[in-house]
């Protein structure tokens, strides 16, 4: 394998890693901060991709980004209202919205499950045109993905330090304390989910535009992939600072994509992606638990071997 093909593989991994890290940052807000496992993520990712694609195809490359994020906010609002105002369990609300979005997405895409953007003007083609004579001409995807990720990281770092951001973090930590600070946890959960879903939709929108097509399955498994990335990132930081945690969520996403790309190079079939991400999530979440159970397991084993007196 020569240098240029390694380089291009690395570049693809970086692009995909950065774009999907927007979903990881969304989960960083909803899962790590708000303590809500938002199962509408897959549907919302596709929703962003579909809305973004339709708006871009109709000739508005910049508006498509805003429209996708707006769609994500709407989806987040619905998920939040279901769980805070209508007595539906938070996991179930996510699944319900996810299922409903499948139909909505096909409707948005105009009764089809595949849209092609080969000739569509998007933010990517705009930048590609602008950079055509420079040394960065092949880096246009990475640049856009990087800018989006940087904007979201900066936003989160600032936002989570504001009073509203602190209230959102406290809601995931101790909702009773939030109420006794005269803040309504319904409000903080709603705001948190609206923001996080806007990032998920942005992620889907950029993913579709980068690969110049959107199909109805583009978001399937995204939640697990993003969760795996988030947990990989968690393994690397020791400080509790928000900015580190957000940056390592992005690093986790890139590591995940690099490892995945390498695995593909070594002939792992592409369809294994989701199994691999599932296994990573299982290991990352269960390992601390199993570790804490180890002394007990050892004692039980010793007991079995040595009879009741061991």
């Amino acid at each position: 394998m020569d240098f240029s093909s390694v380089f291009s593989l690395g570049q693809t991994a970086l692009e995909l890693g950065l774009i999907s890290s927007l979903t990881v940052l969304a989960l960083f807000l909803s899962y790590s901060m708000l303590n809500v496992c938002d199962l509408s993520t897959d549907g919302c990712f596709t929703f962003g991709a579909a809305v973004g694609a339709v708006v871009a195809i109709s000739g508005h490359p910049y508006l498509s980004i805003a429209a996708a994020m707006g769609a994500g906010m709407l989806s987040g609002l619905v998920t939040a209202v279901l769980q805070t105002r209508m007595g539906i369990n938070s996991l179930l609300s996510g699944i319900i919205v996810n299922t409903g979005l499948y139909s909505v997405n096909i409707a948005v895409m105009g009764n089809t499950s595949l849209l092609n953007m080969n000739r569509t003007e998007t933010v990517f083609t705009k930048l590609k045109g602008a950079l055509s004579q420079t040394a960065f001409s092949s880096q246009f995807k990475v640049i856009i993905a990087f800018l989006a990720v940087a904007a979201v990281v900066v936003f989160l770092t600032f936002f989570l330090r504001t009073r509203l951001g602190l209230a959102i973090r406290a809601t995931g930590n101790n909702p009773a304390m939030v109420r006794s600070s005269s803040i309504n946890p319904v409000m903080t959960t709603t705001v948190g989910l609206i923001i996080s879903n806007s990032f998920t939709a942005l992620s889907g929108c950029l993913m579709a535009q980068a690969q110049k097509s959107v199909n109805i399955d583009i978001g399937s498994g995204m939640l697990t992939v993003a969760l795996a990335s988030l947990l990989i990132g968690n393994a690397f930081y020791s400080k509790n600072r928000i900015v580190f945690r957000a940056v390592f969520a992005v690093v986790g996403a890139i590591i995940f994509r690099v490892v995945y790309t390498l695995a593909l190079r070594f002939n792992m079939p592409a369809f294994m992606l989701k199994l691999v991400s599932s296994v990573i999530v299982i290991i990352a979440i269960s390992a601390p638990y199993l570790k804490s159970q180890m002394p007990m397991i050892k004692r039980r084993l010793a007991n079995r071997r040595g009879g009741h007196n061991a």
Partner: peptide, 25 residues
């Protein structure tokens, strides 16, 4: 019951004080 365990002392106090706008730090 009364405090958010994952947050710092001053962050807890900020929420309790409830001063300034939502976007103030």
């Amino acid at each position: 019951m009364g405090t958010a365990p994952g947050m710092s002392i001053e962050e807890n106090l900020t929420l309790a004080a409830g001063r300034g706008g939502w976007l103030s730090t």
